[in-house]
Simulated assay, not measured.
Amino acid sequence: MGKQATSESFGLSFGAENPALDRRAVASQWRQEANGTNELDRGIAVESLAHYGGRLPMKILDAQVDWREDVGNDPRLEVLVDETPDRSELRFQHDDGLWVAIDNGYVEYFSWSGDGNDGGFSGRCFEITTTDGEQVTLRGPWSSRAGCVNQRRFGPVVDVRLATDPAVLERGYTFRSGTLTLSAAKQAIDLAEEDAHLERVTKFDSDELYWVPVRDDRGEI
């Protein structure tokens, strides 16, 4: 396990140093205080609810790096969070067939351009909502990758491994694939026990940008 999260960690103005806090419970408390009689508490609660859209952001609790030194693949950042937003809470934008939602550091994306582009995920349908409030059904979208997102106006983002169970971080497997904004990924890697940072690299003929974990003793960016 890595370094202890502090209140400076991503999205944790309400006390990230206490991973036992439940973000829905805190949001509920804010709603109660917003309707209370204490003017100071009411003002803080109303401002907090407005800032977070009535709910709290995902909390980053811990992180580590799988250096994958026995294979030729890039190292992968593994991140423990309290929970991830439900897709119904996300609001997607799209650009040239790429559909992207960013929610307080959490990122979700699909590649889908409509009929004839429906062979991904075995033809499974994904119901999403755009930033304009439009309900869209993505039938058989493809998963894409962070480098493609970073070529558009949505990035920079970093593909990671995510878990909500501390035991997953302990054993080092059964993560799920996920993506964070670069800012959130940087704050996550700062929690890793081994000193490391994210270094920008360019890949493929299309010059896609990626951020890869690197040990600090190999030099700064």
Rank of each mutant, 00 (worst) to 15 (best):
R176E: 15
W30T: 04
E39C: 14
S9D: 11
S7V: 02
F92T: 00
A45T: 12
D62N: 03
G72W: 01
R76G: 10
E39M: 03
R42N: 05
P141V: 09
T202W: 01
R55H: 06
L12W: 09
C125T: 12
L12D: 05
T131V: 14
P156W: 01
D118F: 08
L191A: 11
R218W: 12
G120K: 05
T84A: 03
G178I: 00
W211N: 06
E33D: 15
P156I: 01
E83I: 11
M1W: 08
G72L: 12
T174H: 14
G219Q: 08
G147Y: 09
R200L: 11
F126D: 05
G53C: 04
G140F: 01
Q32R: 03
E89M: 04
I189G: 04
G116R: 03
D22M: 10
A27E: 00
K186P: 03
D95F: 13
I128N: 00
P166W: 12
A196N: 01
S7L: 15
N18G: 11
G140S: 06
R161T: 08
Y52H: 06
V136L: 09
L40P: 04
G15W: 00
G11N: 13
V71E: 15
F126H: 13
N73D: 08
G36C: 09
A25K: 10
A25D: 03
D115R: 09
D118L: 06
M58E: 10
G119K: 03
F204C: 13
N35D: 15
S206G: 12
L180T: 09
V214Y: 07
C148G: 08
V46G: 10
G172Y: 15
V136Q: 05
N73E: 05
A184T: 01
A163V: 05
E134G: 00
E69H: 14
S183G: 14
E199I: 05
S113A: 09
A167K: 12
F126N: 00
S113N: 07
S122F: 14
L98H: 02
N18D: 05
E47Q: 13
E39K: 06
L49W: 07
T174L: 15
G43C: 11
D96W: 06
A188F: 07
G72R: 05
R171D: 01
A5P: 07
S48N: 03
I44P: 00
S144H: 14
D41C: 12
Y210F: 07
G114K: 11
Y106I: 02
V71Q: 12
Y109N: 11
Q93G: 12
